[in-house]
Amino acid sequence: MCLKIGAIMLMLLSLNAMAVPTDDISSMLRQQEQAWNQGDIEGYMSGYWQDDKLRFVSNGTVRYGWQTTLDAYRKNYPDKAAMGQLNFKIEEIKMLSNYAALVVGHWQLKRIKDAPAGMFTLLVERIDDQWVITHDHSSD
């Protein structure tokens, strides 16, 4: 009896030690938020899949590629004042498999002159042992 209880306890402890994918995804998004708020666009972009197949949909435009997305961010947010302070509010992280999740949330920028806000839907995938955004659809 004691052996069975000990085995069950060991199994439960090992499950707690395993990383929960939603926690890893939330952590990646918090790191993006922090990088943005420090004026570090390249750090922010580390949450995106560094590949030509990355897809970014916004303002009626579809962009492909990590570099294209980085260039658009640099153009639209040339300095820290333009970047403002970013805040994400995650509504849901739905695991689609062990290697893919759908994330729905809100974004808001607080700047001196305005406070644009909107929503996003992200496809986040585990590639090369790292969670990265492979598809981003953001709207105002």
Rank of each mutant, 00 (worst) to 15 (best):
L15E: 02
N16G: 08
A17S: 08
M18F: 02
A19R: 00
P21H: 03
P21M: 04
P21T: 02
T22D: 08
T22N: 09
D23V: 00
D24N: 01
I25R: 00
I25K: 00
S27P: 04
S27M: 08
M28G: 10
Q31H: 15
Q31R: 14
Q32N: 04
Q32L: 02
E33S: 10
Q34A: 10
Q34L: 12
N37T: 06
N37H: 10
Q38Y: 14
D40H: 04
D40I: 01
I41R: 12
I41M: 13
I41P: 11
I41S: 03
E42F: 05
G43P: 06
G43F: 00
M45G: 08
M45F: 03
S46G: 07
G47K: 02
G47I: 00
G47F: 01
G47M: 01
Y48N: 01
Y48T: 00
W49Y: 14
W49K: 08
Q50Y: 03
Q50R: 13
Q50I: 00
K53R: 15
K53E: 15
R55V: 15
F56E: 00
F56Q: 03
T61K: 14
V62Y: 06
V62N: 11
R63M: 10
Y64A: 09
Y64K: 13
G65D: 05
W66T: 01
W66K: 08
W66L: 06
T68Q: 11
A72R: 13
Y73P: 06
R74W: 07
K75T: 12
K75L: 14
N76S: 13
N76R: 13
Y77D: 08
P78K: 02
D79C: 01
D79Y: 09
K80G: 02
K80I: 06
A81R: 14
A81H: 07
A82W: 09
A82P: 06
A82K: 15
M83R: 15
Q85H: 10
L86T: 01
N87E: 12
N87M: 05
F88A: 04
K89M: 08
I90R: 00
I90C: 00
E91R: 13
E91K: 13
E91V: 12
E91G: 11
E92L: 14
E92K: 15
I93K: 02
I93C: 00
K94C: 05
M95Y: 06
L96A: 10
S97P: 11
S97Y: 07
Y99W: 13
A100R: 07
A100S: 13
A101Q: 02
L102Q: 11
L102V: 09
V103L: 09
V103W: 04
V103M: 00
V104L: 11
H106Q: 13
W107K: 02
Q108I: 11
Q108K: 09
K110V: 03
K110E: 05
R111V: 03
R111T: 02
I112V: 15
A115S: 11
A115L: 02
P116W: 06
A117S: 10
G118A: 07
G118H: 11
M119H: 15
M119R: 11
F120G: 04
T121C: 09
